[in-house]
Amino acid sequence: MEVRTIKVFTTVDNINLHTQVVDMSMTYGQQFGPTYLDGADVTKIKPHNSHEGKTFYVLPNDDTLRVEAFEYYHTTDPSFLGRYMSALNHTKKWKYPQVNGLTSIKWADNNCYLATALLTLQQIELKFNPPALQDAYYRARAGEAANFCALILAYCNKTVGELGDVRETMSYLFQHANLDSCKRVLNVVCKTCGQQQTTLKGVEAVMYMGTLSYEQFKKGVQIPCTCGKQATKYLVQQESPFVMMSAPPAQYELKHGTFTCASEYTGNYQCGHYKHITSKETLYCIDGALLTKSSEYKGPITDVFYKENSYTTTIK
């Protein structure tokens, strides 16, 4: 009895394709271990004539594949690729409408935090270190965002349907971005203890939790000093293409032309909904596939993004 075979390709990165001759009487799992086709788990399936010449994702289970996976995804987590594939199996079914010149995501599976993050990423200057993220990001900007969303979920250790947080998501993504040249110098002034300067680099240099107003941050924000008295913390120097200011959701007025974009969060910790506000020729609110415009805006804002380049204080 002759062994019926077909020729397929296996890959971990969709760049390096490895030619395989597979036995049609055995499952993919018996031949390769966990195997995925377009995100779908085909591990328990036997090869079919229609699979001839198709590319299958496999887990990096030998040295060659491990090197290829690390170079593309910059992670050695053995569960990463499987999590990416199972997320992709959902995100490829989502709709990605162009809204006001940006790629958004039609609401499904509690994905409003991903839509808000995706919209924000198209408006701030950011370059990702893992080629996987950078490639998928370019495709997302062009309207094909399924891979990018699935990668975000995998890097953030999230599953489809789980509630997510924009600030946490951005923080994970910033860790995989090139923020080497970003720098922030802060000064804390206390009447009792004097003053202390701190220099922050990388992710810490672009994120701040405690106030939404970048102007206020430049002037000074009140913080408790270690001595128990009130101290003032203010920005001395900022070198970065953008800054992200966050605070627990509270009524906040966004003035046209003073910011790049913002995240609105309605609801409580267990259950809520994100919308995205962007400042173009007027203010726009993007909620999944829905767009509304207004000249002014007041609502429960939790993150505001500002364009920056270089700032030095005039406070002496």
Score class of each variant (00 low, 15 high):
Glu2Trp: 08
Val3Trp: 12
Arg4Pro: 14
Ile6Tyr: 09
Ile6Ala: 09
Val8Met: 15
Phe9Glu: 10
Val12Asp: 07
Ile15Phe: 14
Ile15Thr: 12
Ile15Arg: 11
Ile15Gln: 11
Leu17Pro: 07
Thr19Ala: 12
Gln20Gly: 09
Val22Ala: 15
Met24His: 07
Thr27Ile: 12
Tyr28Trp: 11
Tyr28His: 05
Gln31Tyr: 14
Phe32Asp: 06
Phe32Val: 11
Phe32Met: 10
Thr35Tyr: 05
Thr35Leu: 09
Asp38Met: 09
Gly39Asn: 08
Gly39Ile: 07
Ala40Thr: 12
Ala40Met: 14
Asp41Gly: 09
Asp41Gln: 13
Asp41Asn: 10
Val42Thr: 09
Ile45Pro: 06
Lys46Arg: 13
Pro47Ile: 06
His48Ala: 14
Ser50Ala: 13
Ser50Asp: 13
His51Asp: 14
Glu52Asp: 13
Gly53Arg: 13
Gly53Cys: 11
Gly53Pro: 04
Lys54Cys: 15
Leu59His: 15
Leu59Gly: 08
Pro60Trp: 09
Pro60Val: 06
Asn61His: 11
Asp63Leu: 07
Thr64Ala: 13
Leu65Gly: 08
Val67Tyr: 12
Val67Asn: 15
Glu68Ser: 07
Glu68Thr: 07
Ala69Asp: 08
Phe70Val: 11
Phe70Ala: 11
His74Pro: 05
His74Met: 10
Asp77His: 06
Pro78Met: 10
Phe80Ile: 04
Phe80Tyr: 04
Phe80Met: 04
Gly82Tyr: 08
Arg83Ala: 09
Ser86Pro: 05
Leu88Ala: 05
Asn89Gly: 12
His90Arg: 11
His90Trp: 09
Thr91Lys: 03
Lys92Asp: 03
Lys93Gly: 11
Trp94Tyr: 04
Trp94Ile: 03
Lys95Leu: 14
Tyr96Glu: 06
Gln98Pro: 06
Gln98Gly: 06
Asn100Phe: 06
Gly101Met: 02
Gly101Lys: 05
Gly101Gln: 06
Leu102Asp: 05
Leu102Ser: 06
Leu102Phe: 09
Thr103Tyr: 12
Thr103Lys: 02
Thr103Phe: 09
Ser104Arg: 03
Ser104Tyr: 00
Ile105Ser: 01
Trp107Met: 04
Trp107Val: 04
Asp109Trp: 03
Asp109Ile: 03
Asn110Ile: 01
Asn111Ile: 02
Ala115Val: 05
Thr116Gly: 07
Ala117Phe: 01
Leu119Cys: 08
Leu119Phe: 02
Leu121His: 01
Gln122Cys: 05
Gln123Arg: 04
Gln123Trp: 04
Gln123Leu: 05
Glu125Ile: 04
Leu126Tyr: 03
Leu126Ala: 04
Leu126Lys: 01
Lys127His: 11
Phe128Pro: 05
Pro131Thr: 04
Leu133Trp: 02
Gln134Trp: 02
Asp135Asn: 11
Ala136Asn: 09
Tyr137Ile: 08
Tyr137Ser: 07
Tyr138Pro: 08
Arg139Gln: 13
Glu144Ile: 06
Glu144Asn: 13
Glu144Ser: 11
Ala145Gln: 02
Asn147Ser: 11
Phe148Cys: 04
Phe148Ala: 03
Cys149Gln: 05
Leu151Ile: 02
Leu153Asn: 02
Tyr155Ala: 03
Tyr155Glu: 03
Cys156Leu: 08
Cys156Arg: 03
Lys158Glu: 01
Lys158Phe: 03
Thr159Gln: 14
Thr159Trp: 09
Thr159Lys: 15
Thr159Pro: 06
Val160Trp: 03
Glu162Phe: 01
Glu162Cys: 02
Leu163Arg: 15
Asp165Tyr: 04
Asp165His: 01
Val166Cys: 07
Val166Asn: 03
Glu168Pro: 03
Met170Lys: 00
Ser171Asp: 05
Ser171Leu: 10
Ser171Asn: 15
Leu173Gly: 03
Phe174Val: 04
His176Val: 07
His176Ser: 05
Ala177Cys: 15
Ala177His: 01
Ala177Gly: 06
Leu179Gly: 02
Asp180Gln: 12
Asp180Met: 08
Ser181Ile: 06
Val185Ser: 05
Leu186Ala: 07
Leu186Asn: 05
Val189Met: 10
Val189Lys: 11
Cys190Ile: 02
Lys191Val: 15
Thr192Cys: 10
Gly194Ala: 03
Gln195Ser: 15
Gln196Ile: 09
Thr198Pro: 01
Thr199Ala: 08
Val203Phe: 14
Val203Thr: 10
Glu204Tyr: 10
Val206Asp: 02
Met207Gly: 03
Met207Arg: 07
Met207Asn: 02
Thr211Lys: 02
Leu212Asn: 03
Ser213Gln: 03
Phe217Ala: 15
Phe217Pro: 01
Phe217Ser: 05
Lys219Thr: 12
Gly220Leu: 01
Gln222Gly: 08
Gln222Thr: 12
Ile223Glu: 10
Pro224Val: 15
Pro224Gly: 08
Cys225Trp: 00
Thr226Pro: 13
Thr226Leu: 10
Cys227Ile: 01
Gly228Leu: 02
Lys229Glu: 14
Gln230Leu: 14
Lys233Met: 15
Lys233Tyr: 06
Lys233Thr: 11
Gln237Val: 11
Gln237Lys: 15
Gln238Ile: 00
Gln238Trp: 01
Glu239Lys: 11
Ser240Val: 01
Ser240Arg: 00
Ser240Glu: 00
Pro241Asp: 09
Phe242Asn: 00
Phe242Ile: 00
Val243Thr: 01
Met244Val: 01
Met245Trp: 01
Met245Val: 00
Pro249Glu: 00
Gln251His: 15
Glu253Val: 09
Leu254Phe: 00
Leu254Glu: 02
His256Tyr: 11
His256Cys: 15
Gly257Val: 02
Thr258Pro: 00
Phe259Ser: 01
Phe259Met: 02
Thr260Pro: 01
Thr260Ala: 12
Thr260Asp: 06
Thr260Gly: 00
Cys261Met: 03
Ser263Cys: 12
Ser263Met: 08
Glu264Ala: 12
Thr266Phe: 08
Thr266Arg: 07
Gly267Leu: 07
Asn268Ala: 15
Tyr269Leu: 15
Gly272Glu: 01
His273Lys: 00
Ile277Asp: 00
Thr278Ser: 12
Ser279Ala: 09
Lys280Asp: 10
Tyr284Val: 14
Ile286Tyr: 09
Ile286His: 03
Ile286Leu: 07
Gly288Glu: 00
Gly288Leu: 00
Leu290Gln: 15
Leu290Trp: 12
Leu291Arg: 08
Leu291Asp: 07
Lys293Val: 11
Ser294Met: 15
Ser294His: 15
Ser295Phe: 08
Ser295Glu: 14
Lys298Trp: 12
Gly299Gln: 02
Gly299Glu: 02
Gly299Ser: 04
Pro300Ile: 15
Pro300Lys: 08
Ile301Lys: 00
Asp303Ser: 01
Asp303Asn: 04
Tyr306Thr: 00
Tyr306Lys: 04
Lys307Tyr: 09
Glu308His: 06
Glu308Gly: 07
Asn309Glu: 08
Asn309Thr: 15
Tyr311Pro: 12
Thr312Cys: 10
Thr314Leu: 15
Ile315Trp: 15
Ile315Asp: 15
